[in-house]
Design a binder for these strands. Structure first.
Length: 300
DNA sequence: AGATTCGGCGT
DNA sequence: ACGCCGAATCT
């Protein structure tokens, strides 16, 4: 038998292996097929199959199945117009939270394992013994990357041109506004809707709604590993368009009290319980889907 | 039966 | 041109 090397795949959670097999006969001789193996040995031969299995635990949007690597340039396959501001992608700068778009950049915001449900009381669905250890794993590596912002675009302009430029800049700086009315769907929707922000948090700029502020901060936490301090310059409150610190969300500087922390810990605890329930439901749905696929396969 | 391999459809 | 998956073939 051919010697096949299963190599580690750093883009996937630990334990996943990748294999490439060269076709050695037929019309397609010389071409190759790529397979992935889950930690327990289940074989995957396409991205959709892999995607179905990993579900929400890993965002395969920019995962290239053939190479096994994340390809940052290759956003979602969907034909959604990606309005990326070329300015914010130019080289030489650092992450700019205010021109960067609120696009999900991580596979999951959770960096720690969560409660794993291993038994489903009352579940009549046939259980695949291998699946027990195969339930969606929590991602352990965060797929984040930084975009660069343009530095030194200091060309001199006429004053009328300047006005246009300022208006344009304003739209870019305050993209948070565009989040108005947008919400995550599903469970998260309820979570967001009922979420209260501590009184110490105040927005900077043309939009001061809590809703938008919350989105801005959440997005900042997703996109940057640096501490979120808010706008520390007092001048930014008077004239944000000039003094804005683009590495920080449009939020006034704030302080965190012990009370805040205790409240937050409680919320996290409650959220974990909700998540546990959700994962359980997801597991059941997945089992059903799996069984359906099995049956379809047998009826040929 | 499960695993392996190539064909070929659909994009 | 290639991803994906059916099905023929192999063990």
């Amino acid at each position: 038998m051919m010697e096949r090397k299963r190599t580690d795949c750093p883009a996937l959670p630990p334990g996943w292996k990748k294999e490439e097999v060269i076709r050695k006969s037929g019309l397609s001789a010389g071409k190759s097929d790529v397979y992935y193996y889950s930690p327990s040995g289940k074989k995957f031969r396409s991205k959709p199959q892999l995607s179905r299995y990993l579900g929400n635990t890993v965002d395969l949007g920019c995962f290239d199945f053939r190479t096994g690597k994340m390809m940052p340039g290759k956003m979602q396959k969907n034909k959604q117009r990606l309005r990326h501001d070329p300015l914010s992608l130019a080289k030489g700068g650092k992450l700019d939270l205010n021109t960067a778009l609120p696009i999900r950049q991580t596979a999951s915001i959770f960096k720690q394992p969560v409660t794993k449900v291993t038994s489903h009381p009352g579940n009549k669905v046939k259980t695949d013994p291998q699946r027990g250890t195969e339930q969606p794993r929590q991602q352990q590596e965060v797929f984040g990357w930084h975009y660069n912002t343009a530095a030194g675009s200091n060309k001199t302009r006429s004053s009328s041109e300047n006005n246009k430029t300022e208006n344009c800049l304003c739209l870019q700086l305050f993209w948070e506004r565009r989040l108005k009315g947008l919400r995550s769907s599903d469970i998260t929707e309820e979570a967001l809707r009922t979420m209260d922000l501590p009184k110490g948090l105040q927005s900077v700029g043309p939009d001061s709604s809590d809703e938008t502020l919350l989105s801005a901060i959440a997005s900042a936490l997703h996109m940057s590993s640096a501490p979120i301090t808010g706008q520390t310059s007092v001048a930014a409150e008077k004239n944000p368009a000039i003094w804005l610190n683009t590495s920080q969300p449009l939020c006034k500087a704030f302080t965190v009290t012990d009370e805040h922390i205790r409240e937050q810990e409680l919320k996290v605890y409650q959220a974990r319980r909700s998540l546990e329930e959700a994962l359980m439901a997801d597991g059941l749905a997945r089992a059903v889907e799996n069984t359906r696929e099995l049956l379809e396969g047998k009826t040929a």
